[in-house]
Design a protein around this nucleic acid. Sequence first.
DNA 1: GAAGTTCTGTGCGGTATCGAACATAGGGGT
DNA 2: ACCCCTATGTTCGATACCGCACAGAACTTC
Lengths: 250, 250
Amino acid sequence: MASPHDPRQNHLLAALPASDYARLLPDLELIAMPLGWAVYESGGHMGFLYFPTTSIVSLLYVMENGAAAEIALTGNDGLVGVSLFMGGESTPSRAVVQSSGSCYRLPARTLKKEFALGGALQHLALRYTQALITQMAQTAVCNRHHALDQQLCRWLLLSLDRLAGDELLMTQELIANMLGVRREGVTEAAGHLQEAGLIRYSRGHIKVLDRSGLEKRACECYAVVKKEMDRLLPYEVSRLLTGGASHAAH
Amino acid sequence: MASPHDPRQNHLLAALPASDYARLLPDLELIAMPLGWAVYESGGHMGFLYFPTTSIVSLLYVMENGAAAEIALTGNDGLVGVSLFMGGESTPSRAVVQSSGSCYRLPARTLKKEFALGGALQHLALRYTQALITQMAQTAVCNRHHALDQQLCRWLLLSLDRLAGDELLMTQELIANMLGVRREGVTEAAGHLQEAGLIRYSRGHIKVLDRSGLEKRACECYAVVKKEMDRLLPYEVSRLLTGGASHAAH
DNA sequence: GAAGTTCTGTGCGGTATCGAACATAGGGGT
DNA sequence: ACCCCTATGTTCGATACCGCACAGAACTTC
């Protein structure tokens, strides 16, 4: 798995051909992502493109009345700051660190220069953006049609996929904020999952006991997004080339 | 307003510099968009990129159980088929003609060649895609937090903006399908708006009587999306150059 | 103009989530 | 060991939407 701090822990960076990667490497800066840090604010200036490695970042919309909802989740499978290369420079959403860890970032200028070359980075970034679109669309539908229990399963799985291990640090309050529901609702839904023996919950520590049980209980949204993600960014291939880990998976 | 069939009725095409436009023109094909036609199906092959002029296209997600929800709306302000240039070739969503009219389309091959040049079309297409992302994100939040009455206002306004005139042809059944709610719910919400004197409803004909009243009643989502759209694609400029209509608006 | 079809209005009970208030409990700091 | 703060659990009525069933009304067809 190489060093604990390897930019190639990020799947997009890992998928770059050696020459493209070499061009970016000097400008890649390792930074720590503390829990709760706003990587960028709604409408704010964005100086960097972020490639999470061990951290997870939530994209969320905050409304005038303060209510919020998560629209997408990014971990080492993607990047944060899509609007930098899409041309808008900013978005009306916030990006918040949902699980602390580390991350590499690239100055906006370097990114734009590389993107303009029309090479592998452009290709990957756009494909990732499409995957992000899928995730957002599915979130919209899920918000409309699915029960909280199912949405919680989906969310736990999405987070789990972007973490090592089977435990997340996350209070019910925070989860509620992500899902755009009341905290009490999460308490209840989490209670159901605990009774069913799928998770164990304790003051901000969630241990997943039965992952496949969660998958069965989740709505289709999780599977759809995962499948589309794998279709658009079959990073496994490149990880094999770079001496990465598993072919296995599912 | 030029001819009734002018590709430049589409704002993106209108915003292209003359030389870029000239390159595309020979391959632009005018087609009719009949109500209900599926421009593309979920996961299906996409042979063309579509530039609506007088038609409106809904992007919607259909779920396993048949329930659906609209995630975005495109008219002469945009294009349909984002995944053609994002690299995915298909998406898990459907695109359906929601208001009949006409449209120009460009073969996928031409599009990709032009996109690869990195010129104005690439720039505009990506900016439009970001605007689409905003619309989708806002839809997700709106689904979660806002009452049906407000969502209906938002939807009417979004449609109105993409049509000439103040009347839409659309049954409550269809609107319900777009919004992902029951038809009876739409009946009730539309009743409220009618009582308030904002619209007049009659068997598939909706006449908007008080547009600014609708705007006041709509949730913030409409304004946010519109503002972001204008920020990203200030097409007015180019329409002025081509002899287009209003500077006015608001 | 009669019959049929489509669109709209309405009334029911059922359920999920909301909003608010309060009870308990784990865990860290001093 | 104590206190306090944060996290979790539980209750209540209120509300918005669902699913279903059916009535009426307006166009269409013949």
